[in-house]
Design a protein around this nucleic acid. Sequence first.
DNA 1: CTGTTTGGTTGCGATTTGCTACTGATATCG
DNA 2: CGATATCAGTAGCAAATCGCAACCAAACAG
Lengths: 165, 165
Amino acid sequence: MATQRFSSDIGAFRRAALSCPIPNAVDLIGEKWAFLILRGALNGLRHFEEFQAGLGIARNILSDRLARMVAGGILERCPDPNDGRKVIYSLSRKGEGLLPVVVALRQWGEEWGHGSSEVVLADRRDGRAVRKICVQAHDGRALNLDELTWVRPDGESVEIRQAAE
Amino acid sequence: MATQRFSSDIGAFRRAALSCPIPNAVDLIGEKWAFLILRGALNGLRHFEEFQAGLGIARNILSDRLARMVAGGILERCPDPNDGRKVIYSLSRKGEGLLPVVVALRQWGEEWGHGSSEVVLADRRDGRAVRKICVQAHDGRALNLDELTWVRPDGESVEIRQAAE
DNA sequence: CTGTTTGGTTGCGATTTGCTACTGATATCG
DNA sequence: CGATATCAGTAGCAAATCGCAACCAAACAG
């Protein structure tokens, strides 16, 4: 009945995937509008109408996404104390934690020609552009894909990639 | 006719958004399956059946996403020279450039409890875990949201966030 | 030649999108 | 105060997309 005869490392991959946080994370912000709302929030958008006009998103979709992001702890929803009609959607600490993801994606887009870099993100202190985000070793050295492995916290190595040629 | 009377900074936001690479980038990988395929590819998955079994994705959807990612230059598709039935999907340099995005999202998920860190990404040279990815100033200092601004390449400051409030 | 693996495609019902119009609560204007 | 405008959503509905299952042709393997 040929139970499992995988040609390479899907077995290991699936096992590792069980504990991988990415699928859950992707359910929260791995969707066009959710990600654009996040970008908007990082850039100071705070109200329903601002998101709607700023992103050009349909109102029912926006409503749904905001609710999900609030439920997911990325955004916080509170009535505007200065104007009873308005609601303020602000980033939680968890939401702010996504800054590196958004900036990394932006830098990737710039590097690969998905839009010009007319403005660039900079350190407010001195106005100098931020560094290119990269994966860094313990000592700060930049690492690329083939310099990485998976290890268990005890230091034991685990092969997931490279298992298959 | 009340043309534009935005209460805060959507005007500036929309202007900046025109040149922002994020919407295009999001069209390419800002979707659940595309992102999971990317993660799979970074972890060594290479064949159609591997992705299908590894991710549990429907075959028609997988087919569609692979084609899009090839068209978008993230993956490269080539027939396996050793087996005429197989096709190898491998990351292009552009695709590998997304490594920081994926790792940053994974770290965020770990930090905020979307999955355990049974295995951790490490420097293959010494087996030590990689650093937490963050936005860094020119001198390597970690920067958080409120320490950032937008500047034009000539150094001229541009207010997008913080314009409101 | 027979059976299996691989990488798809096709059909179809269920879900999700996105547009437009509407509502109800609160503010602003005169 | 009364009329109007703003804000944050809902409601309805057509069109697009998803996801399952079945099917298929080409390329091996025995």
